[in-house]
């Protein structure tokens, strides 16, 4: 028995979400009195793989196969299923990102294993296996029991955090069985956005809404974000108007994020927007309307003109940074 996790790499490097997943899996493994096996697909150097053991991976399995260079849902599912059987894994966990969302449901069918997605904590009980997840776009929680012997989970990014728990570095390679019938999709071209902090990765997010009045006023949001090492986001009307690109849209139909700090600038906080950000640990709202619903979700609020407040906030953050 073991807990198996799929640790994704980007150009040979792991990201925080991979280490967060190992940290999470370690805690689940402790509850089940077992070990963590991390699976890595693609070329990753040993020094990088070794980092997984710092967060508690007891064993690391690498698969390098030319047919797996792009994400192919069918082929990846097959490889992970093979390793599940080989490792006798009872719990399999993914990050709840584009890749996890693509593979976990397929694996669930292949292994006849119940799947619970976007979990934010370890199971409440393991026998029966009961775990909580948010439903109705964060308006409620549900306790879900998984009835099958193998359980699959996806972990909401930033929801759990990092936890070091060093184990000895134990590396294995694995050669999967792949056939033509699994290789029906092909990645033709990759277009990466560089130099920008990914919203789902960001610890701090500065977000703008219609109260910013127009795309020409985004300068202070970007400046504050850059001072704080934050990502930038926006509400749906802003991306629908084309003021900002769609990949910044946070909310029910956009990105669901859980940063440590979310700063909502000129966002009224429609219920659909709150659904995407309510897992943030601390929410700051700046809005001129004292009755805006965002203040019900916020920890700290300023009722005032965001275009006047932001420059003051930039000054205050600069002062703070100068002191520390």
């Amino acid at each position: 028995m073991s807990v198996l996790i799929y640790t994704e790499n980007w150009d040979g490097k792991f990201k925080k979400l991979s280490f967060e997943l190992v940290s999470y899996a370690k805690e689940v493994a402790k509850k089940l009195n077992t070990t963590v096996t991390a699976l890595s697909i693609g070329n990753v150097e040993e020094t990088e793989l070794k980092k997984l053991s710092i967060y508690g991976a007891n064993k690391i399995i690498t698969v390098t196969n030319a047919n797996l260079s792009g994400l192919n849902n069918q082929a990846y599912t097959s490889v992970i299923a093979e390793i599940t059987v080989k490792e006798n894994a009872s719990v399999i966990a993914f990050a709840h990102n584009n890749t996890g969302k693509a593979i976990a449901p397929r694996l669930s069918v292949k292994l006849k294993a119940g799947l619970v997605t976007a979990v934010v904590a370890t199971p409440i009980t393991t026998e029966p296996f009961v775990i909580a997840k948010k439903v109705f776009t964060s308006k409620a929680y549900a306790k879900v029991s998984i009835k099958s012997s193998i359980k699959i989970l996806t972990l909401l990014q930033n929801a759990y955090g990092l936890n070091e728990s060093p184990e000895a570095f134990n590396l294995e390679t694995f050669e999967p069985i792949l056939n033509e019938s699994m290789l029906k999709t092909t990645v033709l071209d990759v277009n990466k956005i560089s130099g920008k902090i990914l919203l789902t990765d960001a610890d701090i997010v500065v977000s703008g809404g219609r109260g910013m009045k127009g795309p020409e006023n985004w300068g202070p949001i970007e400046e504050l974000a850059s001072l704080l090492g934050a990502g930038t986001a926006c509400s749906r009307p802003v991306s629908d108007e084309g003021w900002r690109s769609h990949d910044e849209h946070t909310g029910q139909t956009g990105k669901i994020i859980a940063p440590t700090l979310y700063i909502a600038c000129g966002i009224s906080g429609a219920i659909q927007h709150l659904g995407g950000v309510s897992s943030s640990k601390c929410i700051v709202a700046i809005n001129k309307d004292p009755d805006a619903p965002i203040f019900e979700a916020a920890d700290y609020g300023i009722v005032g003109d965001v275009l006047k407040v932001l420059p003051d906030m930039i000054t205050a953050v600069k002062e703070l940074k100068a002191l520390s």
Partner: peptide, 16 residues
């Protein structure tokens, strides 16, 4: 399709 930090262009066989 959207990937973390970018976009990929793909082809697929049908049905899909």
């Amino acid at each position: 399709r959207e990937i973390d930090g970018g976009q990929e262009t793909l082809s697929t066989q049908l049905p899909f």
